[in-house]
Nucleic acid binder design. Structure first.
Lengths: 322, 322
DNA sequence: TTGTACGCGTTATCAG
DNA sequence: CTGATAACGCGTACAA
């Protein structure tokens, strides 16, 4: 494979000139530029990327680290990739399946200068381990963390959940059942707090509904519907853990002849494709903007600029289910 | 950041010795080895990956190129990544959304030696364009291609489809309806050919069923069920395009009081999670082994070895739906 | 067992 | 407008 020296030799000029031509630098006579370009095309020459990386100390490669695939994560990845691509960065992927060592592979590559930055979407190691690598390059995360100086694009769900509850209240619903995502998860805690504050605020009498947790699938929503139908004292509104659960719920409820929002109001979370499809009221979750911000943060750290971040806001998307 | 020369200077030895210690080469006295290792840890030194890549002419990075995400592709990716990891390779991802230029980014990185190989799962450029890059490194694909010397782990579906049809026949089904995936797709063509050969072979009288194509979603299966119920002359078995369609079909059919496999036999394709869940007869599709083979092919090309490939076979997975 | 010195392929500074 | 040459950081013949 031809290298820059061979081109230089054949063109009868120095490597410096070749470099100038390749990188579009000024101060090259039109005639030599022509000749060089011709030669480059003839020999099918391209610069060696590793040599450039070595010289520049950067690879234009960003690592994305995550535990596993899921629809929200894929959305994040795609949005991040899109931002990164615009600025010439490519993505290398590390799916850890919860194995800390795989995450360390990525962190080590950062240290060895094979990665310019890392987005640790869902971590596997302890934060202090990850933090010890921040000196080798930008590391950004999607999760919340305390007592750490790793930038994060995490969003607290308390306010958003309140907004959803207030919406239901304003629509006249009083017997509201909340379905929570993963138990022990931070999001579940925040939503529970929002719900109990809400109950307190309006002095809503306590209902004897069971606590539903760890419900995140369409299937869970379907089961929930069967539970709802079997009850004598039914909730008049259900705030689902996400749009999938809401989708399962509304589908079964309607199929069996009940009316939404008449017999029961339903609200989802995330504003995914299915919420649009089934006309579900939901909370819009700006994953794409979070991803964009994640890239902007990295960019700011690399170029020491201070490009503004997009303000992140949940918004209520009101549709026919409430 | 410390480099090898600094370690050498501080240890009072040459860089060659440091290199030997790092790479576990013999012929280093125990005492100097100890001293060097200590110094390396003290200074938190790691070799610069780009320098090594430049020197070795390899990055241990393999690109995966695909049009978009889908469950089968994710399975392929995960299996491939697992094989690659065992041999110290990492994956960088290129999702093209059908844009040929994005695929070219990957191909150019191969040319520039930033990628050691490429798995072109679902291509965006014409084959001859991709083929022109094979001289820069191994390129393997998941798709079928003609008149080309790009290795492929594609599997023809004709035999597999025949097996499924024979199975239905042996179970006594005679009015079999086939639901096909994407129109114009090679797989659809092969399955159609298998079906018409099957009809001919057993002299099955022609039925006036419509041709269903482009059905690949749960939703499609649900619609199909409503169509089936509305018919007077119903198929007694349905060979679905994939497990998702079969899942939608069987769920609705059963919910509305029909019996499977009594009223209708159902068979899916791919043997995904949902087929197991709903106890669907299906055709097992060895994606994981295809991915392993893809890596083995690459490995063989890089190391000029001739490691054996895993034989790829579809198998009928008989369950309760037939 | 250890060291010297060159090559990997570029970029960039500085002199001309 | 152009060229020599010093980095960038490492691996490895070859010599000692």
């Amino acid at each position: 494979m031809a290298n820059i020296q061979e081109i230089a030799r054949l063109a009868g000029v120095s490597t410096a000139t070749i470099s100038r031509v390749i990188n579009g630098h000024p101060h090259v006579s039109e005639s030599t530029r022509k000749k060089v370009i011709e030669l480059i095309e003839q020999l099918d020459y391209v610069p060696n990327g590793n040599a450039i990386s070595l010289k520049k100390g950067a690879t234009c490669l960003i690592g994305i680290v995550a535990v596993a695939f899921n629809p929200l994560l894929i959305r994040f990845m795609q949005a991040f990739t899109q931002s990164a691509e615009k600025h010439g960065f490519n993505i290398t992927l590390f799916i850890t399946n919860g194995q800390a060592e795989k995450e360390l592979v990525a962190l080590e590559m950062l240290k060895r200068k094979q990665l310019d930055a890392i987005v640790c979407v869902l971590r596997s190691n302890e934060w202090n381990v990850i933090e010890s690598y921040t000196k080798y390059g930008p590391i950004v995360t999607w999760q919340r963390l305390e007592n750490s100086n790793i930038p994060s694009v995490f969003m607290d769900q308390y306010e958003a959940y309140c907004t959803g509850l207030e919406h239901l209240y304003s629509k006249g619903y009083r017997k509201i059942l909340s379905i929570y995502p993963m138990p022990n998860g931070l999001n579940t805690k925040e939503r529970m707090r929002a719900h109990s504050d809400f109950v307190l605020k309006y002095g809503i009498p306590a209902e004897k509904f069971p606590v539903f947790q760890g419900k995140t699938l369409v299937r869970d929503g379907e089961e929930l519907a069967r539970w709802w139908i079997s009850q004598i004292n039914r909730p008049d509104a259900v705030f689902c853990a996400n749009d999938e659960v809401a989708a399962g719920f509304i589908t079964v409820i309607r199929r069996l002849g009940f009316s939404v929002p008449g017999d029961v109001g339903i609200i989802g979370f995330d504003n995914t494709e299915v919420a649009h499809l089934l006309d579900l009221t939901t909370i819009h979750y700006p994953v794409d903007q979070q991803a964009e911000n994640a890239f902007t943060i990295i960019q700011n750290m690399i170029d020491t600029t201070t490009k503004e971040l997009i303000p992140l806001n949940y918004t209520l998307v009101e549709r026919q289910s409430t």
